[in-house]
């Protein structure tokens, strides 16, 4: 059975997967889109379609999130405009890299290995952080709501303070009256754009901390400006990939429909559930994603089809486990709050 030219089972799979990704994005403020491109790669889509469609999905998700942050006044449009310039150049360089590697027949392999390394490294960092803090600290997990509360200046590493102290002209003033070097802004934007163009991700998981640590942008403004910037970088990236037939609307539309609903539930859950309780699952999910792509790469290399299936199942299972944990924790917390506030017979 088909709907809009897509098999119903595939449509349900994409809406469901989008919903899980949306819950994660809404709750953690990052990481959700990181699962989409590997999942499409594991499903056997060509690298350019997986990256291009992943980027179009990020674009749509960022539009929805930016509309919310605009209402909160957390977007520095001047900084965002400059970031767009640097990021656009970075995306174009990354895109050229993907197409060049595709001509050589190496694109899926190189992108896959990059994902394994990045997802694995971030997964280890988040899991170690969660175990160390034992769920008592919500910093560093990428939660936008938690991030908005600010970070202790003492938490800024010395190397970051040193980088911020360099004053290479021309200097510019950003939100909060902070003076920053234009070159630093463009450099951070280019580096994250390169990553976006190469991997088909929004790049927020690197750009947001980079804006805070390397440029000195206040965290709430970094979050809003990052999302605003992703709207443009994602839009430009989608257009560039679309020119080469790399964006498949039958993938993006159902993913976005599911993720928009999931993101609302995930956002609402941040006010109910303690992020620290879930963070370890998030780290394990990233590690699961890393292992899944590794399986897919090994399957392709060794010609073992079952490895691809195992990889795909691992990605779905990881996303399902963490988004399920968020929803389950939300329901149980709401129930316990309701029973605690119920009038007593005494």
């Amino acid at each position: 059975m088909e709907l809009f030219g897509i098999a119903l089972a595939t449509l349900v799979l994409f809406v469901g997967f989008g919903f899980m990704v949306g819950v994660l994005f809404g709750f953690f403020g990052m990481g959700g889109s990181f699962l989409v491109t590997p999942a499409l790669l594991v499903m056997g889509y060509p690298a350019r379609v997986a990256v291009g469609s992943g980027m179009a999905f990020v674009f749509g998700t960022a539009v929805i999130a930016t509309l919310k942050h605009h209402d909160l006044g957390q977007v520095d449009y001047k900084l965002g405009g400059l970031m767009i310039v640097g990021t656009s150049v970075g995306i174009e360089v990354g895109r050229i890299g993907v197409f060049y590697l595709e001509e050589l027949g190496l694109a899926s392999g190189v992108i896959g290995v990059t994902y394994v390394v990045l997802l694995g490294a971030i997964g280890v960092f988040v899991t170690r952080n969660a175990l160390k803090n034992d769920g008592s600290d919500s910093s560093g997990g990428g939660n936008h709501e938690a991030a908005d509360e600010g970070i202790d200046p003492d938490a800024i590493p010395d190397i970051a303070k040193k980088i911020q102290s360099y004053r290479v002209p021309p200097m510019m003033t950003i939100a909060g009256g902070i003076q920053v070097s234009l070159w630093m802004v463009l450099g951070v934007a280019f580096a994250t754009g390169l990553l976006s163009g190469f991997l088909g991700v929004g790049g927020g998981f690197i750009r947001m901390p980079a804006m805070f640590y390397l440029i000195g942008v206040p965290v709430p403004v970094a979050v809003g400006t990052d999302l605003f910037e992703i709207v443009f970088s994602g839009g430009i990236g989608s257009f560039l990939y679309g020119l080469e037939g790399g964006v498949d609307l039958s993938i993006v539309a159902p993913l976005l429909a599911g993720s928009a609903l999931g993101a609302r539930i995930g956002s609402a859950a941040t006010g109910i559930v303690d992020e620290g309780d879930i963070k370890i699952y998030f780290g394990l999910m990233l590690l699961g994603g890393s292992i899944a792509v590794a399986f897919q790469q090994a399957g392709d290399y060794l010609g073992i089809e079952v490895f691809n299936t195992v990889g795909f199942a691992l990605i779905l299972l990881s996303a399902f486990m963490v988004s399920g944990a968020v929803i389950y924790s939300t329901i149980t917390t709401m129930r316990s709050q309701a029973s605690a506030s119920a009038p007593s017979a005494d």
Binding site: A56, F59, G60, V247, L256
Partner: peptide, 10 residues
Amino acid sequence: LVGAVLLEAF
């Protein structure tokens, strides 16, 4: 394509 994704997001 980009317009369609934007419209869907709105």
